[in-house]
Design a protein around this nucleic acid. Sequence first.
DNA 1: GCCGGGATACTCT
DNA 2: GAGTATCCCGGCA
Length: 194
Amino acid sequence: MKKLDETFYNRDTVAVARELLGKLIVRQWGNGFIAGRIVETEAYLGVEDKASHVYGGRRTERVEVIYGPPGRAYVFMIYGIHNCFNVVTREVEVPEAVLIRAIEPVTGLDVMAQNRFGKKFSELTKRQCKQIGDGPGKLCRALAIDRTHNGANLTQDALFLADDGWREMQIVVSKRIGIDYAGEAAAYPLRFNL
DNA sequence: GCCGGGATACTCT
DNA sequence: GAGTATCCCGGCA
């Protein structure tokens, strides 16, 4: 298993978004780790992207991390309840990022089931199994990612992304979700599913 | 299985 | 004081 390094993240954001599909999110947990496979991403293309938090060059404390170095986590709270996990791409001062929209559980199934539903994995209904990480807020709950991880360096050991050799068979491209306010930018083909 | 509404708290105006 | 890169539950089929 190979940890993704800064050179992976410091590239074209759309390329990173596509190549993140099938990679693992690995989170240190006690003496071991838990992991999920990324199955859906969205690219957010900086100051000219109306759907992005930095559209028009907005620069506040909340979004400062996006302007920072690549390979960092950008975690923000949405609708007052849910966290969303992003990976910062491109060099310093180029504020682009990839939103991780969904994962499938790989390692630490009981931990994730506990975080999401307070039960063991074997006790989940079929519905709960499917929904364990199939949304940006849900995967953060499953992996216990919150705003304390904002700005975390993803090339270190506590939380990182890795390539375990898995390769996708097919990628579906579509428009992004939940950003109808963004005008024509809402229709850009920047969402990637397996 | 699909649809609709309410929850909830943080950020920026 | 409003808006938000969402989720969940309950109702009906």
